[in-house]
Design a protein around this nucleic acid. Structure first.
Lengths: 194, 194
DNA sequence: ACATATGATATAGAAAAGTAGATCAAATGA
DNA sequence: TCATTTGATCTACTTTTCTATATCATATGT
């Protein structure tokens, strides 16, 4: 979490995605062209401090110079704060269980779509919005059902479900900023098991 | 301690001076021209991240992006670590007493050379080498003697003494890297009181 | 199917950093 | 007094960011 120029790119991208912003949205907020943001995230430029500062600022990040000796402590704090925004313990717990489930699945079933699945899960984890734990529970059951069926299509189904959830979350965050819609009309459970 | 591009300059300069490095020495360490370092410290350029990173690295600093929420905690840690390197308690205690003495003096005597004196004290404090507490004790007595005499020249004398001490420390750190010469041949006590 | 949003790229031009070198005044040590 | 060091400043040249647009394939929502 200290940066060679390479890690910076990933860090900024992660921060942007965690806030559910598109490159163009961030572009507007930071006053930096989208094309430039793309290059930055792909580590294709050695950007100037003013640019970095603008972008970081738009992402609620602050640029700091930390003494080497203080690094571990600072990293620890940064991590704990970064993981704090998860809304509640129940959601957190469900996300953990989902990760476990997927990892277990990945250990004895492999394939490109399993990778997809894991990536999608990671995406969901990064979006720190309110996710109803019940929704996550259903997601997990969907994934668990894969093991019994073992079918490739079941995996794709799960991926599709999660992708849809992600998009709905992102859309909600973007358009109407209703931070805590009590129970959004997710539709995720239609094809749980064959 | 979070940085708009402006504060960065001061921070880097402070870090360099705290390590007793000249711009040319830092230049060699960081692989950046001295002329450029001068510009950077004078906040005359919008430098690139790679440059910042090189220089910071040479100064045992790490570039970080810290979530806004974590700022206070991180600043607190950074400060405590930054003040830690002072060698031993006795030295620390003497430095504190000197600061007190000077501040007391400054409160009822004012003038340009009093400012000088305070600045010199601050410099000494920043150089985190081994300073013999006894030396510092003598410095303090010199300063205390100013009060009784009240003469302008006594202040200048003190400033001169401290400046000399600083230079000797810096010189020792630079040339032969003997980190703990047991008792360097300071010559500070020649004109203590008239 | 259609319109939209996304991220990656390209191009061309303006602005600025970075490099290498030299000079200079002031401070310092000898 | 003399030689060195320091930091600031200048010039000339090279390299790169940064901006402003536009295009493109893909993915997504309606």
């Amino acid at each position: 979490m200290s940066y060679g120029t390479e890690q910076l790119a990933a860090r900024l991208k992660a921060a942007r995605e965690a806030k559910g912003l598109s490159q163009r949205e961030l572009s507007a907020l930071a006053g930096v062209p989208q094309s430039h943001i793309s290059k930055i995230e792909n580590n294709a430029v050695d950007l100037r401090v003013s640019s970095l500062s603008s972008i970081a600022h738009a992402l609620d990040l602050e640029l700091m110079l930390v003494p080497r000796k203080a690094l571990p402590a600072v990293q620890s704090i940064t991590r704990s704060v970064a993981s704090a925004p998860i809304i509640n313990a129940a959601t957190q717990r469900e996300l953990d269980r989902i990760r476990e489930t997927v990892n277990a699945l990945a250990s004895h079933v492999s394939g490109a779509n399993i990778d997809d699945l894991q990536r999608r899960i990671r995406e969901i984890t990064q979006i720190q919005s309110q996710i109803d734990p019940e929704i996550l529970q259903k997601v997990r059951r969907t994934i668990e059902s894969i093991e019994s069926s073992g079918s490739n299509e079941a995996v794709n189904q799960a991926v599709e479900n999660i992708r849809s959830l992600r998009n709905q979350l992102a859309h909600r965050a973007a358009s109407h900023e209703s931070p805590r819609a009590p129970r959004p009309a997710y539709r995720l459970e239609e094809d749980q098991d064959g």
